[in-house]
Nucleic acid binder design. Structure first.
Lengths: 231, 231
DNA sequence: TGACGAATGTCAGCCACTGACATATTGTTT
DNA sequence: AAACAATATGTCAGTGGCTGACATTCGTCA
C-alpha cells in the first residue's frame, strides 16, 4: 500500500487555500514560504497526485477517500482538511485559474466590446492550460464518464468562471447583473463554447491545439443571430 | 409524526418514471390507470409533498430523508425507490417539463431561425410554469440558499433542458453538435437567460409575470454582438 | 382461488463528510 | 534555551445519503 509507481510528488508549491496568513509574509526575493507552509503544500500535492493516479487507474467512483488518504500516507481526516470534497481533489488548480481569469479580464482595454473581452481573456489563459494540461485531460475524461464529476464541473468550476465573467462585464459596462441578463448570458454562452471545445480536445486525446479549439468555438458567439439553416 | 398540517395529497396522477408498462395501457376515454399505478403515484406525490413541506418549513439541509419518509408514512427505502436523490424530490415535475419542451421544439416551423425556435418553444411552456408555479418558486428560493440545490439544478435540470435544445437544433440544422459548437452555445445562453429571469422572479416573490421576464431575457440573445458600453 | 409480479418493509452495510479532542510539530517570544 | 502560541495531523465516534438482499404484502389476472 505504499506510493510506488508514478506520482513523483513534484512538490511544485501549489497555492494552498485554507488559512489566510500562509505563504511568504516576508518581502521580496523568493521569500521561502516557511517550512510549515512547504509541508502543507507538500501534503496537499501528495493528496492530489494520489487522487489523480487512483482516479486514472481505477476510476472515480471506484476510488474511496480512504484509498487516496492511504496512498498519500495521511489520515482520511487530513484529506478532508485539505479538500472539501472528493471531486475537488481533481480540480486543485481551480482557484489559481480563476485568479488568472480575473486578472486577464481586468487587463483588457476599457472600450473593448464584451464578447472580445471574454474571448481575449480566455485565450490569454493558454499557458495556464498548458501548465495543467494533463490534469485537464483527466478531468475531461472523467467528466465524460462519471456524472458526479460532470456535476461538480458544471456546478462548481463553471459557476466560478461565470461569476468572474459576470462581475467583470457588469462592472465594465455599468449594468446591474440582477436586471440586465446580458452579462450572465455571455458568461453561459462562453462556458458552453469552452465545454464543446474541451470535449472535442479530450475526445481526440489532446492532440489538437486546445486554445485554437476554444478560440474557434468562442468566435461563434457574435454571429449567433445569423445562425441559419444551410439551404 | 403523522402527516397532519398541509399536504392535501392532491393525487394528480403525476408521471411515474420507474417501470415501463405503467399508467393507462387501455385506449382512449379516461382509461383509469389501474389501482396499483394509482397507489404508486399517490405514494410518490405524498413523498414529494412531504419533502416540499419540510424543505419549506425547516430548510433543505435541515431535513433528512428519514424525516420525509416518516411524514409520508413510508420507509426510507421506499423513498429511494421513488426518487434517486433527495434533490430530485424537489424537482418531480422535471421529466414532464422536459417532455413538453421536446414537443414544443419539435412543433416549431422547420425554417424558423434557431434563436426564434428556442424562444418560442420556451415561451410556449407558460402553462407548465403556471401549473408548477409554487414548486418553481420553492425551487428558486432553495437554490438561492442551498448550494446542493443549486448544484442539482445546474447539473441535472439545466443539463436536461440543454440536451433537448442541442438535439433539436442540431437535427433541425443538420449540424454535428460534437463539432459545431453553436447548438450548445445557444442552449447555454438560453439557460442563462432563464436563470436570470427566474432569479428576478423569485426575488420579487413571484409577483412579476414569469413568462414576460423569460421572454425579455431571451430577447437579449440575438443582439449580444452589439452589446456595448453606454457612452 | 391460486399463482405471479410489483410495491413495500426490514436490516445491514458502504461511503462521503464532520465535530471533538488529543498529540505533535513548527514558529515566536522572552 | 525554554516557554508559549499557533497550526497541522491523528483518532474516534457519529451523521446522513444511498444501496443490496431478502422477506412480506398487495394487486392483477387467469
Amino acid at each position: 500500500m505504499a506510493p510506488a509507481t508514478p506520482s513523483p510528488v513534484s512538490s511544485a508549491p501549489t497555492s494552498v487555500n485554507t488559512s489566510p496568513n500562509d505563504l511568504d509574509m516576508s518581502i521580496d526575493s523568493r521569500p521561502q514560504p516557511s517550512r510549515r507552509s512547504r509541508k502543507k503544500s507538500k501534503t496537499r500535492t501528495a493528496l492530489a497526485d494520489a487522487a489523480a493516479y487512483l482516479f486514472e487507474t481505477q476510476g472515480f467512483d471506484e476510488t474511496t477517500t480512504v484509498d487516496i488518504a492511504e496512498r498519500a500516507d495521511v489520515s482520511q481526516r487530513t484529506l478532508f482538511r485539505h479538500f472539501a470534497t472528493k471531486e475537488s481533489m481533481l480540480y486543485g488548480e481551480m482557484d489559481e485559474t480563476i485568479d488568472e481569469l480575473r486578472s486577464a479580464l481586468a487587463e483588457r482595454p476599457p472600450d473593448e466590446p464584451p464578447l472580445a473581452v471574454v474571448r481575449e481573456a480566455v485565450v490569454s489563459l493558454a499557458d495556464n492550460f498548458e501548465r495543467h494540461r494533463d490534469r485537464r485531460l483527466l478531468q475531461a475524461r472523467l467528466a465524460a464518464t462519471y456524472p458526479s464529476v460532470s456535476a461538480f464541473s458544471r456546478a462548481t468550476v463553471q459557476l466560478g468562471w461565470e461569476r468572474e465573467i459576470i462581475d467583470a462585464l457588469s462592472e465594465r459596462l455599468g449594468v446591474d447583473p440582477m436586471h440586465d441578463p446580458r452579462p450572465e448570458i455571455i458568461a453561459g454562452a462562453t462556458m458552453s463554447a469552452i465545454r464543446v471545445a474541451t470535449r472535442q480536445w479530450s475526445f481526440n486525446g489532446g492532440q489538437d491545439d486546445y486554445i485554437t479549439l476554444i478560440a474557434d468555438a468562442l468566435d461563434a458567439l457574435p454571429a449567433l443571430g445569423a445562425f441559419e439553416r444551410a439551404s
